[in-house]
Design a protein around this nucleic acid. Structure first.
Lengths: 337, 337
DNA sequence: CTGTTAGCGCCTTCAA
DNA sequence: TTGAAGGCGCTAACAG
């Protein structure tokens, strides 16, 4: 059961040296003779010696690990962000441990505790749709562990955030539908706990206002992002006395689901009803008809978030910044509108 | 720069107790009076005390962390497997750190070194298409750290493996094409370093043999899974004097790419040329025409692999098993064939 | 250039 | 029921 680990002591003994000398070689310290250096390196290699990061982390009070907590893994969105973050992290010498909150507040809290116990040097997080209380995150601040939010942020906390211009993206999407002569544009919105929902909804409203199209509250349906429910809402919309001729969905999975349902009903997209999503998931260009959507620089979001976090880690706590980085979206017009 | 961490000592001092007593409370040791127990727990909670797993890991020579190394993050395949593995790992009390080898042997080796340095208790790995040398993995065996392969395995190593019945899946897929009256079935195969390529190719060959269809080597194209190259091969196939009337692709990304190319040429799918993939990526049912493919239980693969690994970790090294778990595939017939 | 010492935070003996 | 001491593997002083 117990494994034997090769340690510095083993090497030191075989070479008749002191631990510290061996350590010096391994850390690249200059003041050590070429001869011993070579001997140590050789033996280390031969023994498959590997420095125990655990002890180093303990000693330095720095684990060189960052945590990432994401709410879901269903769409390709978060995996891609993680990839982007990983890229930068690896480059900067950080390991990544991943937490999955499964859109549940309790799981998110449990995850943060794990991250703390594992002594992460910083945390990247996108909150669940349920999260309204942020005490579990404030602990990090108190402990001097920097946090960076991405995508789904907590507006009240004064820490760096990486988001996209949700308002603008939504505005453009709806404007586009208006220019396509659509008069009754529905919005499948997200829960109002998420700032992305709020901002996209505002973009939707303002676009309609700008073009003097009356806002019909009946056409705005906030939902909890449980894909299975989309069917209910779309059916409801279609049965309205005055049904919509377009749907702007909070995200691509929602839009795609809506599209499938509308197609099954025998309606023509975009003629009878146009559909626009948000995010440009990697499937969106391949479905039939291809989905018009607002693309986000997903990988870049990961990169940026990780970079901001590393910057915070390297800064003294007294100099923490709370930058908000807003990444540009782009409207990608395809066949569904 | 230096953060202050709350430690057992802090708690002990404030309560006028010894470190060991506090530790006993925290570890749930029984021999401690109810009064002190309560006091400690209360103060700990109040101070946001969190046990330092680093030091515990160091002490126990057990990190409660497993590593997962995957070759790519492009398709939804590996993220899903990781999710599955995470599920089980979390349940069994293990953290997960993820490595991304980017289909490069060197990166894979670097990743394994990182895993070792971080004292993982076990490793889950799917190798790159380049990996022919396995010394970097044998180190784990020598150190007594169990490995479990999944999907892309090393046949020569005597450790647990989780795969799907690639041969059978491929056989069925090709048989299906034959029953659709296809006579010239091409195969876009994977590199022969990967056992999945070899087995799927064998399934392809045997299916043709069974139905007395001559095998035309010209129609078998092994490639390196670089999606961009699919175009070259498909064009090549279509320009043949006697072009294929069906393509069986090693995986779904390849099949989907082939489908796009074929469609752009103005050919009818499946009438002019049928296409079948392998994996049932989550896009495959949504593209037009929907892709016929061999589905794998992806999440289950992650579950199984993680479970096997945890079992190995809990076993004495002398009792390591080398089970090969073969998961069932299922042919999903859709519009592309 | 090399060795000695102390200690990161924790748990597990052993002794009281 | 509690306390004291030792050590996991490593590095950073402080000495020579």
């Amino acid at each position: 059961m117990k494994r034997h680990q090769i340690t510095i002591v083993d090497i030191a003994q075989k070479l008749n040296l002191s631990k510290s000398t061996v350590s010096r070689v391994l850390t690249g310290h200059p003041s050590v003779s070429e001869k011993t250096r070579k001997a140590v390196l050789e033996l280390a290699d031969q023994l498959d010696y590997s420095r125990n990061m655990l002890s180093i982390s303990l000693l330095n009070k720095k684990s060189n690990t960052i945590g990432i907590i994401v709410p879901e893994f269903i769409s390709s969105y978060f995996p891609q962000v993680i990839m982007g973050a990983q890229e930068v992290a690896a480059q900067e010498g950080y390991n990544v441990i991943i937490g999955h909150s499964n859109e549940t507040y309790e799981t998110e809290v449990a995850n943060t505790k794990l991250m703390l116990a594992n002594q992460v040097d910083g945390l990247l997080i996108s909150i669940t749709k349920e999260t309204r209380n942020f005490d579990h995150l404030k602990v990090f601040e108190r402990k001097g562990i920097p946090i960076v939010f991405f995508n789904r942020v907590c507006e009240d906390m004064n820490v760096p955030k990486v988001v996209v211009d949700d308002y603008e993206g939504a505005f453009r999407a709806v404007e586009h539908l208006i220019k396509r002569k659509k008069k009754r544009i529905a919005h499948l919105a997200g829960p109002d706990t998420l700032s992305i929902s709020v901002k996209r909804l505002r973009g939707y409203r303002d676009a309609l206002k700008k073009y003097n199209i009356p806002i019909d509250e009946e056409l705005i349906i906030p939902y909890d992002l449980t894909i299975a429910k989309v069917k209910i809402y779309v059916n409801h919309l279609l049965r309205l006395d005055n049904p919509p001729d377009a749907i702007f969905a909070i995200n691509d999975p929602t839009a795609i689901e809506a599209l499938q349902i509308v197609k099954k009903k025998g309606l023509q997209v975009p003629r009878d009803i146009a559909i626009v999503g948000f995010s440009n998931d990697n499937i969106s260009g391949l479905i039939e008809p291809a989905l018009t959507t607002v693309s986000q620089p997903v990988r870049e979001m990961g990169n940026t978030a990780a970079q901001l976090l590393v910057d915070q880690i390297n800064r003294d706590i007294s100099e923490w910044k709370s930058i908000i980085r807003v990444l540009k979206t782009e409207l990608i017009v395809r066949k569904s509108s």
